[in-house]
């Protein structure tokens, strides 16, 4: 972890500003993130889709519950890119041991039901604490920004819904006879099933880089604060090439 390689401007930020920075950050790696997300989410979805009856909500519940799993490769990739360590799509997949296993059970069970999930995910993935240490760490890092972390989860959840409905609305505008927006969502899942399925999956993938990066930046901002990253970077720059004038001694 070489602080001078950070690709973000380190300064003390409040939670909102950290989330905003996360949006800028996510945009840089958006395509790669979406691809990584779909690589894992699509099989999960298709599998549950095959195993259950047509038109039930069960696949969606599984798809939604396993979200932390698809976000992991994104977070892994972003945590390296943050320090200018180029980590492409293939390299991320090849390094699957680094992100697929550590703490996977926890994030899909006890740590799944967290309202500020993406802010705590980096603790599990990057620090790999035991569960005793985890609760202390999440309190120190998360407590201050937990309110904003919750809004992040809630609002991006709504944004997913808005985008999914928007896609259907645009389709309904273009093909009025084939898509019925109001029905598509509530009781006519079967009729428009393919459209609903793919728009839901795609919208989830499209939003996930923002959600993951914003949570990651909340985490990073707390570490900048608690560990004085901004000060350390500045002092190290100041010392670069500096030699104590002749005559000085320790």
């Amino acid at each position: 972890m070489q602080l001078s390689n950070l690709i973000i401007e380190t300064r003390l930020r409040n939670a909102w500003s950290s989330i905003d920075l996360g949006v800028l950050f996510a945009r840089q790696f958006w395509w790669r993130s979406v691809a990584l997300y779909l690589v894992i989410a699509t099989p999960v979805f298709l599998l549950t889709r095959l195993l259950t009856d047509f038109g039930t909500v069960f696949p969606f519940i599984v798809l939604w519950w396993c979200k932390p799993l698809y976000e992991r490769p994104i977070l892994y990739m972003m945590s390296r890119e943050l320090f200018s360590d180029q980590t492409g799509f293939l390299r991320t997949l090849l390094n699957y041991r680094d992100w697929l296993f550590p703490g996977t059970l926890a994030i899909l069970t006890t740590r799944r039901i967290s309202f500020a999930r993406s802010m705590y995910a980096p603790i599990t993935l990057l620090e790999r604490p035991t569960s005793a240490i985890y609760s202390g760490r999440s309190l120190v890092l998360g407590h201050k920004f937990s309110g904003e972390g919750l809004w992040l989860t809630l609002i991006l959840f709504f944004v997913e819904g808005i985008f999914a409905v928007s896609i259907l609305a645009v389709l309904a505008l273009m093909f009025p006879e084939h898509v019925d927006v109001a029905l598509a969502w509530f009781n006519n899942l079967e009729r428009n099933s393919a459209i609903v399925d793919f728009s839901t999956l795609f919208v989830m993938a499209a939003i996930s880089p923002f959600y993951t990066a914003a949570g990651f930046m909340l985490y990073i901002s707390r570490r900048v604060e608690l560990e004085g990253w901004d000060i350390e970077i500045c002092f190290r720059d100041w010392m670069r090439g500096y030699r104590r004038p002749i005559g000085g001694s320790e």
Binding site: E227, I231, C234, W238
Partner: peptide, 28 residues
Amino acid sequence: TAFINFALNRGNMSEERQEEIAEIIRPR
């Protein structure tokens, strides 16, 4: 700015961490 942020310690750095960072510029 770094000196001032250090003095204000808005991030509540621990004692050890403060010492560690300040030691970086010891030669100066």
